[in-house]
Structures are given as C-alpha cells and as structure tokens.
Amino acid sequence: MDLQAIRTFCRAVEAGNLTAAAKALHITKSVASRRCQSLEDGLGVKLLARNTKGVTPTDEGALFYERGIRILDDVEDAAQAVKHTSDNLVGTLRFTAPRSFADLKLGPPLMAFAQQHPGLKLEMNLTDERVDIIGGGFDLGLRIAPELSDTSLIARKICDIRHHVVASPAYLEAHGTPKTPEDLKDHNCVFYSNVEAAKQWRFGTGNNARAVRVTGQVTSNSGLMQLAAAVEGVAIATLPDFFLEDAVRDGKVIKLFEDVPRAPSYLYALYPERRLLPLKVRLFIDFMADWFAVPENHCEV
C-alpha cells in the first residue's frame, strides 16, 4: 500500500480539504486528489465525501484514518530508530511562532538548538497572525494566549507570560494617573487587533477576576506599534513582559496597577495529536521548556 497516498489522505482529513492538504505536503491539488482516489480504488471503498466546502471522512474513512495515523507514526518511529539519535537529528522541523516574541526572545534559544543539532534544518514561519498548524503542514506552533480553543491540538505550557499596563511619564503628566483599572474608561488606550475582545482588558484571577472596557484612538496588530504609542505619550498600552524590558529600565514607560495584575497568559507549544510524537518535535519542545525555566531567560521585567 502506498504510504504517500495514506499520508495525503490523513492530511486531507485533518485539514478538511484537498487544497490545504496539498499545500502542507508541497504537492499540487491534482496530485493529492489522485493519491486519495487511488487509495479508495485499491481498497474498494469510498473514504472521503467530497463537497463544495471540502472533504469529510466517511464511516469507513474515519476508521481508516485512525489506523492510517498509526501506520504513519510507526514508520516515523522506525525511521527515527535507524537514522536519528538525540545527538544526530536530521530532516526538517517546520514551526510557526509569534513574530514579535521571536524577534525579541527566540533568537538565542533557536540558535543554541540549531548548534546542538547541525543536521536538522529549521524552517520558521514567524507571524503575529493566527496560523492553521495542521493545514499549514507545520510540525508544531508556539502561541501566546491566556487559554486555548484549539481542541484538535495537543498543548504543552512552556512558560508564563505576564502583561502590564504602561504609560509614559509625559502621558501621565498631561492626562493624570489612573488609580484603578476602572479609571481607564477616561483615558486613551491602544488596542491589539490579533486578540478577541481587544477592548476588554481582564484583571485579576479567580474570584477577583474582572474585565474593564476601554476605548482609544489607535488599533494595531503590532506590539511594537503599541509600545511606540505608549512611549510617545499618545496612549496607555497593555503589553507582555518581553516588550517592556528596555522601556521600563530606561524610564520611558511606567507600570500601572501592579497591585491588580493583568490576567496571565502563557507560551504554549501546540502540535497535532499523534500516538508517537516525532523525536525532533519532542526534543525541540523540551529544549524550549528547559531554556525558559532558567531564571535569567524568564520573560519578566
């Protein structure tokens, strides 16, 4: 039985359409379609129900998918056993990560990991936009969020990411200093467009959790642009620790409401569910978790 056909079929089931499956496997849609058709012809059963929105597995297809994933995992495990050791990884690791976080924090650990595994190619997709990890054909993704809604993905927490509300001394002198989060309703705030409920800033945890609705002039999908709005005295911003180290140290912004912290977020490693996690993925995640567990590498101001 053709392993490429099985791999293409499983990717199509995961992505929900042949176009995304083909893109993930770096083949054309017509090749993906032929592989799935040849698999169905060889088995003598219909595995995929095709419609204008994409593909869904039939009952037989769902059963074959579960077995097919195990076959692919076993093949991957066998290949790793004969080709790889933890000191001699080969192949390519494709992952996605938030660009702002990568630019400011991921350079040293990524280069250290690359030096530790010179035979492994690292292919990075760095963007602050939400990425379809399965449909994009990535081995894993790093994501910062207070909680995750991707129920189809396995998540491992790497480290805590604290957020702070900050403003410049010039802004506070001109507009006054808000004493409580509720006072923000009378101030100009800058928003991050890549998150849901961007104008609802959450404070506290547990029974003390509350949301404060804020308004403002500037909205951006760039954390650096939000920081610029705060540093230049245009608005009050809420930003993760890793954006604020230099600005806080140099006195360009001042942290507000430290006695009422923002609700926490976390850096997660996300990867598709597999019975056997590829060695390159496991070692990469372990490396990142170990790196950010070291106090001097913490993402805290």
Results as ranks from 00 to 15, higher is better:
Cys159Tyr: 01
Glu245Val: 14
Lys83Gly: 00
His175Phe: 11
Leu267Ser: 07
Leu227Thr: 10
Val195Trp: 13
Ala79Tyr: 13
Phe101Trp: 14
Arg34Met: 06
Gly233Gln: 05
Arg274Asn: 05
Pro57Thr: 08
Gly223Leu: 15
Cys189Pro: 02
Ser100Gly: 12
Val212Arg: 03
Ala114Thr: 14
Val55Phe: 04
Ile144Lys: 03
Val248Ile: 15
Tyr65Ser: 10
Val281His: 00
Phe292Gly: 03
Leu48Glu: 03
Val253Leu: 04
Leu110Pro: 00
Asp87Leu: 09
His164Trp: 13
Pro57Cys: 08
His163Gln: 07
Lys46Asn: 07
Ile236Leu: 01
Ile69Asn: 10
Leu3Asp: 04
Thr215His: 11
His163Phe: 12
Arg156Asp: 13
Glu245Lys: 14
Gln37Arg: 15
Ala269Glu: 03
Ser265Phe: 09
Phe287Thr: 02
Ala230Val: 01
Met225Gln: 15
Thr28Met: 00
Pro278His: 04
Ala263Tyr: 12
Val294Ser: 00
Leu227Asn: 10
Val212Cys: 01
Leu47Lys: 11
Gly54His: 08
Gln217Trp: 01
Asp87Phe: 05
Lys121Ala: 13
Val231Lys: 12
Pro98Met: 07
Ala62Asn: 08
Ala230Lys: 03
Arg210Lys: 15
Thr151Tyr: 12
Ile69Arg: 15
Asp160Thr: 15
Cys159Asp: 06
Gly42Ser: 14
Leu106Asn: 04
Pro278Arg: 04
Ser30Glu: 11
Cys189His: 01
Gln4Ala: 13
Thr85Asn: 08
His175Gly: 02
Gly42His: 12
Leu227His: 10
Phe243Arg: 05
Arg50Gln: 05
Thr56Ile: 12
Glu147Phe: 10
Phe113Met: 07
Tyr192Asp: 06
Tyr171Arg: 05
Ala247Ile: 06
Leu267Pro: 06
Phe191Pro: 00
Asn194Lys: 14
Gly107Trp: 05
